[in-house]
Amino acid sequence: MTKVLVLAEAKNGKLRSVSFEVLTVASRLAADGEISACVFGSDAERHSKELSKYGAQTIYIAENEELDDYTPDGYKQALLEVIEEMNPDVILTGHTSIGKDILPRIAARLDKALFSDCINIETDDGIIFTRPIYSGKAYQKKKVHDDVVIATIRPNNMEAVENPVTAEIIKLPVTITDLRAIVKEVVSKSNGKVDLAEAKVVVSGGRGVKSAKGFEPLQELAGLLGGAVGASRGACDANYCDYSLQIGQTGKVVTPDLYIACGISGAVQHLAGMSSSKVIVAINKDPEANIFQVCDYGIVGDLFEVVPLLIEEFKSALEEDAVTN
């Protein structure tokens, strides 16, 4: 009987959608085994209902305010206690800022392999993970030979499927000692906006946006579609926006359902960060721009004409929906 443990993550008081995606992966790996989730922090218990909606049969809670902010030492101690308690065969979490920070330490501690940033799992003949390498220019299938399987799952890649169960909640009295690194302060740059890595829609600007102010119509479009704004390295280098928005080989990798590239030429460096998006729309004045080679739909035109029209047309399409629903 396979026992799977999922480390769930909350942000701004809400569970992240990647946690549900990982639970769905867990249910595939568990087959008729057991799925457990763990979640940390002083108000962790409030998340149990949602976790059980996605199949978590046992939920380990470590209610400790030392775990309110993520620290490698704190999370390591808490997670190791859960692992000791339940002895999982599989440990999963999202390939997120926290996931990719803590699981390497856990894997090192347990002396196991870690499969990072996985986008697919096959279970027919042992466990085989698919993961992108070389910024998505190639995919690698890796077979697991360890007795404990540890992996991080790329957000926004696998659908979260509801699978409601009744969960047993187990509170672990975790004592956190000797935090060698502590978080003094978090300066939120995303302040409530949709997280770029998890956004279903990304509207992204390049040098063609021409100024910081040029990003305003893009923000409006992203806001309308419930998405996030991104940028090419060119736009960041030109100081039109913050580097935290950069998508590409040296920036973030995004895989939204819809990626709208505005005034982006489509340099290899940028494509590395977005080419796995489900649908790519390119808007560029230059019909020869490389971005048209990778897009699903392209409009040759000035983004400052096209984006306002898009806003208008999306508005009316979405309003129609509201009326018919």
Binding site: K142, P287, F292, D296
Partner: peptide, 19 residues
């Protein structure tokens, strides 16, 4: 601990539609 069993390039995208 692990073996690579396959390595491949993502399928080339179909040519997009330019309006």
């Amino acid at each position: 601990r692990s073996t690579v069993v396959d390595l491949y390039q993502p399928p080339k995208k179909k040519k997009g539609r330019i309006f």
